[in-house]
């Protein structure tokens, strides 16, 4: 039991590390790799929680996560990046060190926020809830600070990772049906993003979301 909790904490730390990695990484492929790593840690962590808590349906979730977030989604994004011939450099709105500092502030805030829950909960995974919350917020932060549509998608998927992690760490996972549904949603979202990228590109000749400001009505 204790060991499982320790392993889970380690994995949580790694997930948080990859989340920061996403903030720091300046190259598109590197970003994808880090995202895949995050998915892998998540998948392992889910399996560990499933083993420790004896809830076996978490294994299915774990496998699904592995297939989707480690293999399929990075692959799709990879293909997209190649096809669309996207710049390999990432453009940011706020510079990296500042983003990092905000990220650290968010982590502290998350710990502060989850402190009361940590004292009430009896689950082995209770200490990782703060990490999950921090991952969600860092994902959102990434969406805010990046210009490129693809990076925004990765931020979105990172947020989803965080939510999933929160679900497993707070309540030993959602019911299987819900998880299956979520997994399907992610998959479909990825396809839709793929299609939209092409459309956005043909419309604006760019994937810079700044272009969308043109959609606003003039006054």
């Amino acid at each position: 039991m204790n060991l499982a909790a320790q392993i889970n904490s380690l994995l949580a730390a790694l997930i948080l590390l990859t989340a920061f990695g996403l903030l720091v990484q300046k190259r598109m492929y590197g970003l994808l790799h880090i995202f895949a790593w995050q998915g892998l840690f998540l998948s392992v962590s889910t399996a560990v929680v499933g083993y420790a808590a004896g809830t076996h349906h978490l294994y299915i979730s774990s496998v699904l996560t592995l297939l989707l977030k480690v293999i399929l989604l990075p692959y799709i994004l990879h293909v997209l990046i190649q096809r669309l011939q996207i710049h390999k450099e990432i453009e940011t709105v706020v510079n990296v060190p500042t983003t990092m500092l905000i990220g650290i502030a968010l982590v502290i805030f998350s710990y502060h926020l989850t402190a009361p829950i940590r004292e009430l909960s009896t689950l082995v995974t209770r200490s990782t809830l703060a990490v999950a919350l921090a991952t969600v917020m860092i994902g959102l932060l990434m969406m805010i600070t990046r210009r490129h549509a693809v990076t925004q998608i990765i931020g979105f998927l990172a947020m989803e990772n965080g939510l999933f992690f929160a679900a497993t760490s707070a309540t030993y996972g959602m019911p299987l049906v819900v998880e299956l549904g979520v997994a399907l949603d992610i998959l479909i979202a990825a396809f839709i993003f793929g299609i939209f990228f092409f459309h956005i590109r043909t419309t604006f000749d760019s994937l810079d979301v700044k272009q969308m400001a043109k959609l606003k009505e003039e006054d």
Partner: peptide, 12 residues
């Protein structure tokens, strides 16, 4: 504003 970042900041 028509800028997606601004909208995201609102929700954040």
């Amino acid at each position: 504003q028509g800028k997606i970042h601004i909208y995201l900041i609102y929700s954040f």
